[in-house]
């Protein structure tokens, strides 16, 4: 395709079906939240979104395997994935910003600090602290205790950081043409990701049953579940991506020079890892 001509992909039905699926999923999600009905349609919508992604990516993989894509298409994919990850970074930045704002400004002001401390008139007995175990409102029950960072969260940190290392080893092996090694380390990475999710599940269970950390437990529970929840969702997406990459590796896809899907998946995984380090530091440790 380098003979001075451009490659333009053919038209496809998946994007339009994808919009319809997104619409069905969102409308029925709204119906579930507002009216408490429509769970069936929400499930159908979700399955439809996943199915469209499956078929759309399958077509792209097929075209890529047929050698239709040129170096320029490859660069377009790279820019696309890079900027997509940047948008994800900004999504988490909003949540971290909320966390810092509440800890640095809102709570001290509620406690009467500084010129803006008039807010303390609302709840004169309130004392600011972080983690906030004693929300000001009478109707809000705070957490009993918070999760120690040096137990399960530390284990999870070790899981995720090592998974980034194992993924890099797998990638290097793929680039050297050692497919079996690449496969083994990728399996290891995926296993570490799954372990992370299991531990996170245990931690959520304990948070709800033993620590009283719930969504309703004031701002600590809110930020805790917002940040760890969306991170966990992204680990899940990343793990599914790794599983697909593993399946493709087993089917003989990817060459030492041409494996952008693998690289994109790796970029995403490292991004999820870096977000976790931020979470570990600012949600658990400090």
């Amino acid at each position: 395709m380098s003979g001075g001509s451009y490659y333009v992909p053919a038209s496809s039905k998946w994007p339009a079906l994808g919009s319809a699926a997104v619409g069905l999923m969102m409308v029925s999600l709204g119906a579930v939240l507002v009216h408490g009905q429509g769970a069936l349609f929400m499930t159908i919508g979700l399955v439809a979104v996943l199915a469209v992604m499956w078929f759309w990516f399958r077509d792209v993989v097929k075209e890529s395997r047929q050698g239709l894509y040129d170096a320029q298409m490859d660069r377009s994919f790279r820019w696309g994935m890079g900027w997509f990850i940047f948008s994800e970074i900004m999504f988490f930045a909003a949540f971290f910003g909320a966390l810092f704002y509440v800890r640095t400004f809102s709570l001290p002001w509620l406690d009467g600090e500084g010129a803006k401390g008039v807010a303390s008139l609302l709840w004169p007995d309130f004392t600011a602290s972080w983690p906030l175990l004693n929300p000001p409102g009478e109707n809000v029950v705070g957490p009993l205790e918070v999760v120690s960072p040096w137990q399960l969260p530390l284990v999870n940190t070790i899981f995720l950081i090592s998974s980034s290392i194992t993924l890099t080893i797998s990638h290097e092996a793929l680039k050297e043409g050692h497919r079996a090694t690449a496969r083994n380390w990728l399996i290891g990475t995926l296993a570490l990701g799954v372990c992370f999710l299991i531990v996170q599940g245990i931690e959520y269970y304990e948070a709800y049953t033993h620590y009283g950390i719930t969504l309703e437990a004031g701002i600590y529970g809110s930020t805790f579940f917002l940040l760890t929840g969306f991170h966990g969702l992204h680990v899940t997406i990343g793990a599914i991506t790794l599983a697909v990459l593993l399946a493709r590796l087993l089917k003989g896809h990817f060459t030492p020079d041409d494996h952008f899907a693998f690289e994109a998946g790796a970029w995403y995984w490292h991004f999820v890892d870096v977000v976790w380090i931020g979470l570990f530091l600012f949600v658990y440790v400090f």
């Binding site: 400004f105 000001p136 409102g137 809000v140 969504l215 309703e216 809110s222």
Partner: peptide, 20 residues
């Protein structure tokens, strides 16, 4: 879901909404 991001009673802040 009963979170308190923009509710002062739970330790959140309506002004946080405006900043974001």
């Amino acid at each position: 879901f009963g979170t308190s991001f923009f509710t002062a009673a739970g330790g959140g802040d309506p002004v946080l909404f405006q900043h974001l």
